[in-house]
Simulated assay, not measured.
Amino acid sequence: MTPEDQELALLGLIDRAAVRELVDRYAKVFDDRSFTALLPTLFVPDGEIRLPPGGHRGLAGMDDFHRDVMRPFGPTQHLFTNTLVDIEGDQATFQANTHVTHTVLKDDGTADDDDLFLAGGVLAGVTVRTTAGWRFQKVTLDVIWRQGDFGPPAP
């Protein structure tokens, strides 16, 4: 392998690691509910998200969209694993398996540790390289299985 080939291979590894970290940070946003602070560091301004309750495009209102999706739940744990990344120039596609655990809120707004909503699925999408690093352009979550009832869907 030539030095140039080695450098290209190393840059590819660095880019794939950056996209994987972006996916991991997105999982964290759900659990610590840091939507307003962190979503602008994860998505491009016209980024698009598709989750089972619906979708949203653009940073304006994206925090409210995520907050509404998570409204029925107390503490959660989102695990995004086995992230595969394919890079072509300044764009990358990714796919990750998801396993999420949600405590369901009772009528009085407290979390019920005995009432859980579980789901598994595939998170996939497109990221782009920006001057600030890799950012999501489009993210879609397809749920494969679910267990439990979390009440009415988010508005």
Rank of each mutant, 00 (worst) to 15 (best):
V85P: 01
V85Y: 00
V85D: 00
D86Q: 13
D86G: 02
D86W: 03
D86E: 15
I87D: 00
I87L: 03
I87F: 01
I87S: 03
E88D: 14
G89S: 08
G89N: 02
G89W: 06
D90F: 02
D90H: 10
D90K: 07
D90Q: 11
A92N: 09
A92S: 07
A92G: 06
T93P: 00
T93A: 10
F94T: 04
F94V: 08
Q95H: 04
Q95L: 11
Q95V: 08
A96W: 07
A96F: 05
A96P: 12
A96G: 10
A96N: 13
N97P: 02
N97Y: 11
N97L: 12
T98V: 03
T98N: 06
T98H: 01
T98K: 02
T98G: 08
T98D: 03
H99E: 04
H99M: 05
H99C: 00
V100N: 08
V100T: 08
V100Y: 02
T101C: 01
T101F: 05
T101N: 02
T101Q: 10
H102R: 04
H102V: 05
T103A: 10
V104N: 10
V104Y: 04
L105P: 12
L105E: 12
L105R: 15
L105M: 09
K106V: 01
D107Y: 01
D108G: 13
G109H: 14
T110A: 03
T110H: 05
A111V: 04
A111Q: 07
A111W: 05
A111C: 09
A111R: 06
A111I: 07
D112H: 04
D112V: 08
D112A: 11
D113C: 00
D113V: 13
D113W: 10
D114V: 11
D114P: 10
D115C: 09
L116S: 14
L116F: 10
L116E: 09
L116K: 14
L116D: 09
F117M: 07
F117S: 12
F117W: 14
F117R: 11
L118D: 08
L118V: 12
A119Y: 05
G120P: 01
G120D: 05
G121N: 13
V122Q: 12
V122D: 09
V122P: 06
L123K: 07
L123T: 03
A124R: 14
A124E: 13
A124W: 02
G125C: 04
G125Y: 02
V126F: 03
V126M: 05
V126S: 11
V126Q: 09
T127P: 01
V128C: 04
V128R: 15
R129D: 02
R129E: 06
R129W: 04
T130L: 09
T130C: 09
T131D: 15
T131R: 13
A132K: 15
A132W: 06
G133H: 09
G133T: 03
W134M: 07
W134T: 08
R135I: 01
R135Y: 08
R135M: 08
F136L: 15
F136D: 07
Q137A: 13
Q137M: 06
Q137R: 14
Q137P: 04
Q137L: 09
Q137G: 04
K138Q: 14
K138L: 09
K138Y: 00
K138C: 01
K138E: 13
V139I: 13
V139L: 13
V139Q: 10
T140I: 15
L141A: 08
D142G: 03
D142S: 10
D142C: 00
D142M: 01
D142I: 00
